[in-house]
Simulated assay, not measured.
Amino acid sequence: MATNRKGGRNPKLEKATHRYVFRLTDSDNAKFQTLFEQSGLDNRAKFIVSILFERKINSVMVDKGAMEYCTKLSQFFAQFRSIGVNYNQIVKILHTNFSDKKTVYYIWKLEEHTKELAQICRDVLMLSKKFEAEHLVKKGKL
């Protein structure tokens, strides 16, 4: 038989041969699990070694409320952009299909609704600033 290896994984330069076992209480295990999940590592052994030798561990905290806020705000602004596109199309159709008198009347009605939309936009902006000041900046998330 030949001793040359042709397949498989390359052997490690320094094998880990020493093994340690320890036990945790339920509350300690809950803390351990939380820290492990926050670390983002996929291997508990690597996590424990990182903790023991004080290697840097990156942990990511996700605030679901802030995430939902950003999602809803993005959806709102997407709707706002689509309203702007529709606004331009309506004005173009009014000028091409109606008399000047009717066009002026319908544009006036459209302008009234636009004022309401502008007020809603100001309210959203004010609420956004309030949310950021109370929830995001205090927690150091921005």
Rank of each mutant, 00 (worst) to 15 (best):
V60D: 05
D100H: 08
V91M: 08
A118G: 05
D42H: 13
K139R: 14
D100N: 11
V60S: 01
T96F: 04
G65R: 07
C121K: 07
N29A: 15
T17Y: 06
N43G: 06
I120V: 02
T3D: 14
V91G: 00
D100G: 11
F32H: 05
T34P: 00
A2E: 10
D42L: 15
G65N: 07
N4Y: 13
K56Y: 07
F77W: 07
L35W: 12
A30W: 08
C121D: 04
C70M: 09
T71C: 08
L125Y: 10
H95D: 07
C121N: 12
R81N: 13
D100R: 13
I48H: 00
I57L: 15
V137Q: 06
K6Y: 12
V49G: 01
V91L: 10
K139A: 10
W108E: 10
T17N: 08
M1N: 02
R23E: 13
H18N: 13
D63S: 15
Y105D: 13
F77C: 01
V91A: 05
K12N: 03
A30G: 03
Q89C: 02
V124F: 01
A133V: 12
V124T: 01
I83G: 00
A30F: 09
V60M: 10
Y105R: 09
R23H: 14
Q89R: 13
E14N: 07
T25F: 13
K101R: 10
P11A: 07
T114H: 06
K138I: 12
Q89A: 04
M67C: 07
S82M: 09
N43Y: 04
I120S: 04
L35T: 05
P11Q: 03
L125E: 06
R19W: 14
I57Y: 01
K109T: 01
E14S: 11
K31L: 04
K141G: 02
V21Q: 15
M61F: 14
W108N: 08
E116M: 10
Q75R: 13
V62H: 15
G8T: 06
H95Q: 02
A2K: 11
T114C: 03
H18E: 06
T25C: 09
E132Q: 10
K115A: 04
G65A: 09
I48F: 05
K72L: 12
A30M: 12
K31D: 12
I120A: 01
R55A: 04
K139E: 10
E111S: 05
F98R: 00
D100I: 09
E112C: 04
D63L: 12
I57P: 00
V62P: 02
N4I: 11
D42K: 14
N58M: 09
E54F: 05
S59M: 12
Y69I: 02
Q79S: 10
N10P: 02
T17E: 04
H95R: 03
L110S: 00
L110W: 04
D42E: 12
K115H: 06
F131M: 03
K31M: 09
R9A: 07
F77L: 09
L110D: 01
L127E: 12
F76G: 00
V21T: 15
F36G: 00
Y106C: 03
L125M: 13
K56W: 08
F22T: 14
N58E: 15
V62D: 07
K6T: 15
T103K: 05
L24T: 09
N86L: 01
S27A: 15
T71S: 13
L110A: 02
L52M: 13
L13T: 11
K64S: 05
Q119D: 14
H113K: 11
L136T: 03
